[in-house]
Nucleic acid binder design. Structure first.
Lengths: 333, 333
DNA sequence: ATGAAAGCGCTAACAA
DNA sequence: TTGTTAGCGCTTTCAT
């Protein structure tokens, strides 16, 4: 518990040099089994724990992995972080979290902090558009991007466009002809892709598109409610909504219910708690954020051993959780 | 960006000693303004960033703050962590997250990791019952406990008993005479306190207590569904439920709806997403996890300067979010 | 296969 | 007020 014991104490106790202890610690195979045994015994006896600081100072890289996301209290990202942590613990690495609030400046600041901490690697949900900064950053620290891809970097993302098309297709198949898209923020690639998928589905179903049904809603802030009421007061209001932003989805659902418009069908990109409990139940594109985190971490580990490997853009498949029938089992709806 | 510049480079550029640079860095006031200026200029010019590793090695303490909680993907804790992070960023500290999964061994392991990292302080939601370990730990690292108190340690918690009483009182006032308590796990202090508050409210309303209405549900795992169906199949089933565990609350709500029993009134300890959107809407005891995190951090900062100050048990007030009327505005219910 | 010595970047003592 | 020296705990030459 004291943590005062240093490598030299272990060396003394095992009557070897500090270097031999170091070798044992790092699993160097060219150590005499007898000595190794002595060292291991001394380590246990003294309750020795190596100092990450000293190691980091010497080697230039430590046992910290950074996870930089929009916000850790966003369920999508908190699950993702949890997935990362589960993996990290297996590799004996610690997870430093940092949120960007979708602010490029803050993102930069957080990344630089991690750089000064000599983080061993970074998992990042990129907010800024400044790719050149990331490219340069990448040259000193392995980076794997999640949720949103950046060309030239490793990434783990989902196929936003196709998944969205599939989701909207369900609404069209249910007979809806006026389908709104709520949560479109052109600032984000994902958002733009989801809009494309939405348009694909409309075209596929032979429905005409209508700009009025796709209001722009800033990702941050709570303009969703406004956009929703605007949508509903159109002369030809939508009968169904595609919620393209998992973060805002619960707010929209709540607002829809508060307005007493439970008749409006909704499908969401990204699952969320109680999506199956509201009436009517809400079908979702399931992104599996936890798995996304785990995959990103695995890729990061590969980059540790092979930092110059050619960037991989891993596309995860999504699965559509259809809750169309669910509404009939309740007493409501 | 290179991060290769060390203090000696700055010293050379400013034509002072490294110690003077160090003084400027640490805001020591006894530095000649002229020299200070020169140093600051050099720092900017060289884009110098101090090495936390070296500093930590030398001083024995670094810029890392640990947050050890049950699970970071639990909305309560992810909000709490977010509150901590917001504060930490202001103090130039980094946040390391670690989850315990309510496992005492894992908690211990995570705490020891943070110890070896020489974390400057730890915010902990204690899972283990081994207080003596924590007391000893405390002697080397400042610790502030959240959600659950440990005697002898600083803590930020809510008044579980009184808050629960208030919540259950609302159910009694609505005319319910058979009120169940779901989510009781005697392993946790909070859980026991909430049960007490529940009993207080029953007594206050002159309702008889019934052990059958308070099934024990292990905190981890998903025995809630089973407990729920057991409750509902009693000869005298409850007409209302007090959900004492925010984590399981959404699952219970979903199950209740899946069973088509939207007629059952529910009140939850801890607010959750869409509690206002389900029908009937669910009133909640609001714990303000984000504020809890911020307060814990503030206390931690005090402990940095005064590590031997007498432990404070900060009790946060909760506010009851009454959504009783909400159910009438929807088309359902 | 093992060890001695140097040094990573910083700050605590001490000296000037 | 400022600088010099030493050393935090580890790993990396380089010698043995």
């Amino acid at each position: 518990m004291k943590g005062q014991v240093a490598i030299k104490d272990v060396a003394a106790a095992a009557r070897v040099s500090t270097k031999t202890v170091s070798r044992v610690l790092n699993g160097v195979s060219t150590v005499d089994p007898t000595l190794r045994r002595r060292v291991e015994k001394a380590i246990v006896a003294l309750d020795y724990v190596p100092s990450p600081a000293a190691r980091s100072l010497r080697t230039g890289t430590g046992s910290l992995v950074g996870v930089v996301v929009d916000a850790i209290d966003d369920p999508f990202f908190s699950e993702l972080v949890s997935g990362v942590e589960d993996m990290a613990i297996e590799f004996g690495l610690d997870v430093v979290v940092a949120s960007t609030r979708c602010d490029a400046r803050r993102e930069r600041q957080q990344l630089l902090r991690l750089l000064s901490q000599r983080a061993k690697g970074v998992i990042l949900a990129p907010a800024g558009e400044d790719d050149s900064f990331l490219q340069e950053y990448r040259s000193s620290t392995p980076v794997v991007t999640v949720d949103r891809a950046v060309t030239g970097l490793d990434s783990v993302t989902v196929d936003d466009r196709t998944s969205s098309q599939e989701a909207v297709r369900h609404l069209a198949a249910a007979g809806h002809r006026r389908i709104g898209l709520l949560g479109y923020d052109p600032l984000f690639v994902t958002s733009r892709r989801r809009r494309e998928g939405y348009l694909d589905a409309l075209q596929e179903a032979g429905l005409r598109t209508d700009e009025l049904l796709v209001p722009e809603v800033p990702f941050a802030g709570n303009g969703v409610q406004l956009a929703l009421t605007a949508l509903l007061s159109l002369s030809e209001p939508p009968t169904a909504l595609f919620l393209a932003n998992a973060r805002q989805a619960p707010a929209v659902v709540a607002a829809v219910h508060a307005l007493g418009r439970g008749d409006i069908a909704m499908v969401s990109f990204g699952d969320f708690s109680l999506a199956d409990a509201v009436r009517p139940a809400i079908s979702c594109v399931n992104q599996e954020p936890r798995l996304m985190g785990a995959l990103a971490f695995q890729r990061l580990v590969q980059l540790f051993t092979d930092p110059r490997s050619v960037p991989e853009e891993h596309l995860m498949t999504t699965n559509f959780v259809n809750r169309t029938g669910v509404e009939h089992s309740g007493v409501n709806g």
